[in-house]
Amino acid sequence: MKILEVNDVVKIFKTKGGNVRALNGVSLDIDEGKTVGVVGESGSGKTTLGRLIVGLINPDTGSISFEQRSIGSKVNIRHPDIRGKIQLVFQEPSESLDPRIKVGDSICEPLRGLGIEKSSWNSKLKIVSEKVSLAEEQLSMYPSQLSAGQQQRAGIARALITDPKLIVLDEPTSALDPTARAEILSMLQDVQKEFGVSYIYISHDLSTVRYLTDETAVMYLGEIVEFGETSKIFSRPSHPYSTGLLSSILLPDPEIVMDESLELSGEIPSPINLPKGCFLESRCPISTKECSSHHPDLITSDDRLVRCFEVEKMKDIVQPSSKFEDFDKSFDDFMTKRYSSSVQAGNN
């Protein structure tokens, strides 16, 4: 069942420098219990989309509905039927925790707004803090006494305590060390298995998107340029921007070299003066004349949606690759050998 439907939302920020077109018609659905990844460079509109979904800001046009109810001025995020069912976890763990309040109290804070009796707070706190592996003594500490990873666990516990159906995770691991990041991601997976919650996972860290998500939306300058099953996009990206992003992933093996054939050049243009044609035209390695004068639509191409005039050409250029699966497998083989030899040598 669809839990969230985002329909053609547009968001423009009026600033001194001009109108910032942060989102230019974005549509997205998410099924119950699933995870959709939103990837793209900074400035592509990911955070704005997340903030719209949780109701922190309203779209200029377009609509969002949650469990088949449209969220807008009448039924907003604070409506009793919706409140607590959609939660947001921020990039900076400190953003969800008040430095002057003990961690456990911060985690419980969303319950206050739901009018839930105080007597049941403790048992809820116990469940969620166990889920995110926070120890009891950490709950009575202040945020500054926790590591960044522990703070982010607390931020996630705070989101979980209202029993949400959907959590928007806006770059939840980018402030964290690799091992803390890996732990948080597998914890998120466990939580999903147990509670059936849906995630929108916003990130520019592609290897984590591949690991965590079912479907991926690739964004560029406030638009979705490719949408499809994560495994399909990763094995054969169809949009030149997706190709550029994916080929920039650095796997921890010096022998897996980067593919330089479809490299993007330059930087993302200003969202104040959007190009007339395809937004990627200034950076695209295969652009044609048409691309500078016409703007491509998001169309269905085989198993996904793609916004590019040259989508057929891309199919010739980009052959399916099992680079990532191969890496996983060779890493596992390698570690298996490594482990058995160290056990033999008595090293483990």
Binding site: T179, S207, F331, D332, M335
Partner: peptide, 27 residues
């Protein structure tokens, strides 16, 4: 660099590689 990636030995090195490879099993 090649010697390290062909034959990492220290458990911390292996832990970091496992985290980067998102391998729950090896972590």
């Amino acid at each position: 660099i090649n010697s390290f990636f062909k034959n990492p030995i220290h458990p911390y090195s292996l832990a970091l590689l496992s985290a980067f490879s998102h391998s729950v099993k090896w972590r």
